[in-house]
Design a protein around this nucleic acid. Sequence first.
DNA 1: GTAAACAAGTTTGTATCGCAAACCAGTTTG
DNA 2: CAAACTGGTTTGCGATACAAACTTGTTTAC
Lengths: 101, 101
Amino acid sequence: MNDKQPIFDVDRILHEPARLMITTILYTAEEADFLFLLQQTGLTKGNLSAHLSKLEKEDYVEIEKTYRGKVPQTLCRLTKTGRKAFEDYRRQLNKILKEMK
Amino acid sequence: MNDKQPIFDVDRILHEPARLMITTILYTAEEADFLFLLQQTGLTKGNLSAHLSKLEKEDYVEIEKTYRGKVPQTLCRLTKTGRKAFEDYRRQLNKILKEMK
DNA sequence: GTAAACAAGTTTGTATCGCAAACCAGTTTG
DNA sequence: CAAACTGGTTTGCGATACAAACTTGTTTAC
């Protein structure tokens, strides 16, 4: 944003609550499929799909398309980049909170 | 956002870093003029103006246009609503951070 | 066996947003 | 009095987030 208040310069990818939610789940769950994320987040299918695509494009998440029997299944995992971004974002949020006291 | 993860349902007005920065300054400074905010935030004039308008429209900030001698001066203060929103947002951020551990 | 319902996502449409650049009214300087 | 400066506001535009509509394939009903 600027260099006067770099503290408030956050990762816009993770600053979006829906994506932070997804990422938080994947950070501890290691792996989750589309329907699990759908249920945990309460997002619509369209939005979940779009946010996952964005996270994939940023290389924060890797997506594996497989089948559970004959039914398609979309598996999601955080990449190394994604894990690091999550940890960085968490640190940044802590700094911001300190600034807000 | 949803009721499955209400923790991630934040105030979108303050979730924007530029506005959070402005609001954080006003929370402790009580009153600040346009040029002071400009310098402290490092925003461009256009963006500062737009974000202040938005904060005013939400009744988070009140704006008083006066003169310092012959020179126009825009004074900004948080409203009661704004102070409360700031405190709520800070609480919400704390909850999110806990969820992220 | 085929039509209707369902499952798992993806694509489309739209209103909003955040940003920089251009603009503007008034003041000061040369 | 013209040019430059101040203190902002408005405009233009690409990107975003969301819901609704669509798609591809499978299962169920009859």
